[in-house]
């Protein structure tokens, strides 16, 4: 094909691929807003009925309203803990490059590869002993730490490019000490990297099932949205439409984040490519 020209063939293939991502979502919406009878008639067909009963039912039955609040609290705590800790740590690693600092850096980032199930078991036992299970603040902090290795890596990568040695030297000449450089220069400068971290941690924490199912499973009052929606799906008496409605409701917040912070999310994942 000629360079620079639009190819209908290529665009067509890309559109076909995108169906694989759109259709499941459409199916989810379709199932959530149709009646049970309609679905039973043709599960693969188009909906011929419209109802909000499923969504209302799921909302009340699974306590999705409360779960949404819990999820938001957990995710916000996770974002704050993760972003502030990673920012400070990554800055320290930017200005200290001795052998010890580099070793610590590798250690704190490589802990990304420690399987969550492995550290979650003792954390669960420890929290159980301290009677801190089913505590959304604790769960939020732990979710934030779970994302910390990636966040440190991401912000450190950003600092290595944006916070140049020359800039640090200029700050030293201007008479700024380390904490002032951090507060007046590094923090305000890191906005794009912080946006990526916050968007990623929010999305990950919001969608997490393993931590929620371990640390919060003892009390339905503190179920996160994901946990509530999946728990609902395992209850026999709840029909498919109810499950779909719950799933749909639990996807809406991250889809909103996706639309608002798409660029930051993409940048965050891009930083993961190790360019």
């Amino acid at each position: 094909m000629k360079a620079g020209s639009m190819s209908k063939f290529r665009t067509g293939i890309m559109a076909l691929i995108s169906l694989a991502f759109i259709l499941p979502l459409l199916f989810l919406i379709g199932t959530a807003i149709r009646t049970r009878q309609d679905y039973m008639m043709s599960p693969g067909g188009l909906p011929r009925s419209f109802t909000l009963d499923n969504i209302v039912g799921a909302w009340t039955q699974a306590g999705l309203g409360q779960a949404l609040v819990v999820s938001l609290i957990v995710a916000v705590i996770a974002c704050i803990v993760c972003a502030s800790t990673a920012l400070a740590g990554a800055f320290w690693f930017r200005i200290h490059q001795g052998r010890v600092a580099r070793g610590l850096n590798v250690l704190l980032v490589a802990s990304y590869a420690i399987p969550m199930v492995a550290w979650l078991i003792p954390v669960f036992v420890m929290l159980a002993n301290a009677r801190l299970l089913n505590n959304i603040v604790v769960a939020g902090i732990i979710a934030g730490v779970a994302s910390l290795p990636f966040a440190i890596y991401l912000i450190h990568t950003f600092f290595r490019q944006a916070l140049t040695t020359e800039l640090l030297e200029a700050a030293a000449l201007d008479g700024a000490r380390v904490l002032k450089v951090f507060w007046y220069i590094a923090v305000p400068m890191s906005r794009p990297a912080l946006a990526s971290v916050v968007a990623l941690v929010f999305v990950w924490t919001f969608g997490d099932l393993l931590m929620a199912a371990t640390l919060l499973q003892g009390n339905p009052q503190v179920y996160t949205l994901t946990l509530a929606a999946t728990t609902l799906s395992t209850r026999e008496e709840v029909n498919l439409q109810g499950q779909a409605a719950a799933a749909l409701v639990s996807l809406i917040p991250v889809l909103l984040v996706f639309m608002v912070a798409q660029r930051s999310l993409a940048a965050g994942f891009g930083a993961g490519s190790g360019k």
Binding site: F21, F206, G207, L209, A244, L251, V254, L265
Partner: peptide
Amino acid sequence: YFLPAVMSPAIVGLV
């Protein structure tokens, strides 16, 4: 194509 990256594996698994 990037949509699944933000959606919970558990929820999408449900679908």
